[in-house]
Simulated scan of single mutants.
Amino acid sequence: MREPVDGGVALITGAGGGLGRAIARRLAVDGWTVAVNDLRPEPAEETAAAIRTAGGRAAAFPADVTDPAAVDAMVEAIRTEFGPVLVSVANASGPQPVVGLDELDWDQVLTHLEFFVKSPLLLAKAVVPGMRAAGGGRLIHLGSDLFDRADPGWSGYMAAKGALVGLTRGWATELGLDKITVNLVAPGWIPVERHGVIADEVADAWFARQDVPRWGVPDDIANTVAFLASDEAGFITGQRITVNGGFHYL
């Protein structure tokens, strides 16, 4: 059992539900003070309230993480209330329609880039100065194994997730001397609220291609993020860690 964190602040974007909520609650268990971000104030406060009820320390900071001014204001509000952000988890996402090439246009691709490239850039520029001043920190990005697996109609999403790998590896080389690590967690298919009920035949076909024959759960991702946020992961940077039960792409 790792030692609890003493006073560190972790920011998780898109934490009003799904993977973000699980990550926020897991980091709170480790002792992090959690800044819960979501575009929607009510779900963000629900996550923060659940953490406080469980004995943790958290507050909601709703903001549009694709807006430069909103990101700067949010990070400053967190610093004022809790201190500098030492762990930044870029989890926020947007609509993910299935759009084939014939219907795909640049604006739709830009929508994916807003969340998976622009938002992590804005977050990094806002939190890295505080990490440097504190002597180190963690930038953790949420990618997707769909970049490897591929699926018709998902090329815009896949392109943005691939670009995020480039940001991760480039920033890791820039920030290592500052004791700031930069890593990416690439989940497989982790069913959450929006997926609804999954038919048995779909599950059977999926598990036939997966070494661990069960659905991944949000805590599988949250536990990986928690490790990367910990002192034990201080020698790991520039990595893309796939968490998908050993799914076979071919």
Rank of each mutant, 00 (worst) to 15 (best):
P4V: 10
L11D: 04
I12P: 01
G14F: 03
G14I: 05
G16F: 00
A24S: 12
A24G: 13
V29D: 11
D30R: 06
W32V: 03
W32N: 04
T33K: 06
V34P: 00
V36D: 00
D38V: 04
E42N: 08
E42S: 09
P43F: 06
P43D: 07
A49H: 07
I51M: 09
A54R: 10
G56K: 05
R57G: 07
R57N: 14
A58D: 07
A58Q: 04
P62F: 07
P62Y: 08
A63G: 05
D64E: 12
V65M: 07
A69Y: 05
A70R: 01
A70M: 08
D72F: 04
A73S: 14
V75C: 10
E76R: 14
I78W: 02
R79Q: 13
T80V: 14
E81F: 07
P84L: 09
L86D: 08
L86M: 11
S93W: 09
P97V: 10
G100H: 15
L101W: 12
L101S: 10
D102A: 15
D105T: 10
W106M: 15
V109Q: 12
L110G: 11
T111M: 14
L113P: 01
V117T: 03
S119E: 00
P120Q: 12
L123Y: 02
A126D: 00
M131F: 08
M131Q: 04
A133D: 14
A133Q: 13
I140T: 03
L142Q: 02
L142V: 12
G143V: 02
G143F: 00
L146G: 04
D148C: 05
R149H: 13
A150F: 11
A150T: 13
A150Y: 10
D151M: 14
D151A: 15
G153I: 04
Y157I: 06
M158A: 15
A159I: 02
A160F: 04
L164G: 02
V165T: 11
T173G: 12
V182C: 06
P187S: 06
I190Q: 01
P191T: 06
V192C: 07
H195L: 06
H195I: 05
V197F: 11
V197L: 13
A199W: 09
A199G: 09
A203W: 01
A205Y: 04
V212I: 15
W215P: 02
W215D: 03
G216K: 03
V217D: 07
G234F: 07
G238F: 13
G238D: 11
Q239K: 10
R240S: 14
G245K: 03
